[in-house]
Design a protein around this nucleic acid. Structure first.
Lengths: 192, 192
DNA sequence: CCTACCGATCGGTAGG
DNA sequence: CCTACCGATCGGTAGG
């Protein structure tokens, strides 16, 4: 990562954009070459195979979300605050990196088995973080005792992960505001 | 539709399954031929082009969801009851027709522009139905007056449309129960 | 529904 | 980074 050439970075950017628009299988090396103004064969000076690009894009996306998750969990704050903070960060991250997030969420299943397993582990960890925050809120009495941890976490993830399908930068609501409103609704649903 | 041959029905079924597993662009006519035990060229006795199959699968999915939506709206019931009923029906439909629902939700963007527009209209109508139910609940005082109609509807749709990514038939919860728990959380979030 | 074929394009490589 | 190429496969058609 530290030694990644500028060309490789450009290539990953173009891959994120093209894969998000046309899908991984709908994007050819030819398309990628045109996006960078070079012959498709020349791309192999920078990568070993097409799947490397998918992995790079997906791993970037996974890494970003997970970093926000770990940060939210480490906050000295109530469960409601952590949940709200994380949902805002999640939405902001998804919208700031819309192409990469789209690829992360809907093309990751085309990764090679090894790469897929690695990403699955990160997804599992992220989900666990959300559950831990909800469970903590129940413990402290902040959320109602009969709340369903798994369903509350899944509702959180559903709202967060569906944003990329409808968010448009020209829309009237800022990403922060979107995250906040979802969090309000969910936190109210969890109130005692 | 009334005159659809058994072979064509088999073909659409196989397309739903394969497109949901490998994506539209990741599925070749060769794959489809193998699934039906025939040569790929022979498939053209039943369809005009590969895209016809995508359209058939997506249109089936869209039609099913929309029918549930219109039915829920027509119920003689409170807004909470309609919302709960629709969410249960949505989840049940998505899980009963998991492959077609998956294709409907994540391959529809590869339709031809005309077909895409037609499906978009149905999606818009479905979303409108959810909003109308929420708005009605606010009018009658069933939901709190400051509830955000668009966000409540989007939270509903997010939960409903994310199910296909994590639902597994061998899981412990029945689809009805999944829909009911989501509905409870959302309705509680809307309570005055 | 099959055989045999169409031109185009696929991901990837060699050699410079 | 390009030229020139590899074998394989793509969606689709003709003619039977």
């Amino acid at each position: 990562m530290a030694t990644m050439s500028p060309r490789r970075v450009e290539l990953i950017d173009a891959a994120a954009r093209l894969f998000s628009e046309r899908g991984y299988h709908g994007t050819s090396m030819q398309h990628l070459g045109e996006a960078l103004g070079m012959q498709r064969g020349s791309l192999y000076a920078h990568i070993g195979a097409k799947e490397d690009l998918l992995y790079d894009v997906v791993a970037d996306g996974a890494g970003r979300f997970l970093a926000r998750g770990e940060a939210a969990m480490a906050l000295p704050a109530t469960a409601s605050e952590k949940l709200t903070r994380l949902l805002i960060d999640h939405v902001t991250t998804a919208t700031d990196h819309l192409a990469a997030s789209t690829v992360f969420l809907n093309e990751w299943r085309y990764l090679s088995p090894e790469h897929r397993d690695e990403i699955q582990t990160k997804r599992d960890r992220y989900e666990e973080i959300v559950r831990l925050i909800v469970a903590k809120g129940i413990d402290t009495g902040e959320f109602r005792p009969d709340a369903d941890v798994r369903f509350a976490a899944t509702l959180f993830l559903s709202a967060a992960n569906w944003v990329y399908t409808w968010y448009r930068p020209e829309g009237e609501l800022a990403p922060e505001e979107i995250g906040r409103r979802f969090a309000d609704l969910i936190v109210k649903g969890l109130a005692p």
